[in-house]
Design a protein around this nucleic acid. Structure first.
Lengths: 126, 126
DNA sequence: CCAACATCTTGAGATCTGCGCAGATGTCCT
DNA sequence: AGGACATCTGCGCAGATCTCAAGATGTTGG
């Protein structure tokens, strides 16, 4: 404890201390990094990816249809939707006793597209 | 295996079975969802986000400079670099006893930009 | 060859998260 | 109001993984 990470003091040997300081200035701070990590963390689960991709196709679905689409129990789906809602990824609309979910953020589609392009590269060195 | 998720049998009531079937057809399958989740999982840690953003700024850094930049121990940095390398996110170049790391994929910058735009929105209705 | 250095790996401990089940909440139909 | 239905939440367990510390690996210089 005490001083886990001194910001200015560098006890270890550095090859290029100037560049380290410069990059440190320009890169996002710890708080912003944590926000970014949280965004990705929401999509870091296959179950939630399937929910999101299903909503990308369907536009809007109730929980029971969504559960059937992704092949999970409704309770499980609901729990993942809670996580997605916490990050403003989906929004919910109540109609009677049903609750319809849809994507709330246009960025999600871009994230999925970029990630899909990444995995579609598929340059596995055989 | 056995049969965790029956694809055709739907024991629960569905509101719109046709749409469920249609969305099921067009959405990515379980394997692709897992690949997508793995991509996001790599970036779902603040430590790795900081490593990646540091490399976005610096272009290339050795492990000790990288550790100093993100404020972690070298062992910890090395371990996260291993995860990043497993997903083809970074590449390493050995020069003597130093190992220099750089981003290997152009998609990462797009992912970071989109995620940054998402968190910068910050339209929390207070 | 041996010592010093940069990096990598391994193991134990702690934390987090998803899954499955049961019960709670809220809404509609009669 | 009472019952049925759709959805949500709480708890316990299993699995993954982050952190920390120490040793192992590989490379350079004398």
């Amino acid at each position: 404890m005490s001083e886990p990470i001194p910001l200015d003091t560098c006890a270890v040997r550095l090859v290029d201390p100037e560049r380290v300081a410069a990059v440190r200035e320009r890169m996002p701070g710890p708080e912003q990094a944590q926000q970014l990590a949280r965004v990705f963390h929401v999509l870091a689960e296959p179950a939630r990816v399937r929910i999101v991709t299903a909503l990308l196709e369907a536009g809007e679905l109730c929980v029971c249809d969504l559960a059937a689409t992704v092949g999970m129990t409704e309770a499980q789906t609901s729990q993942h939707l809670r996580v997605l809602r916490a990050e403003r990824t989906v929004r919910n609309r109540r109609d009677g006793r049903m609750v319809y979910y849809a994507l709330d953020d246009g960025h999600v589609r871009m994230l999925m597209d970029v990630a899909l392009a990444h995995v579609s590269h598929d340059d596995r060195e055989s």
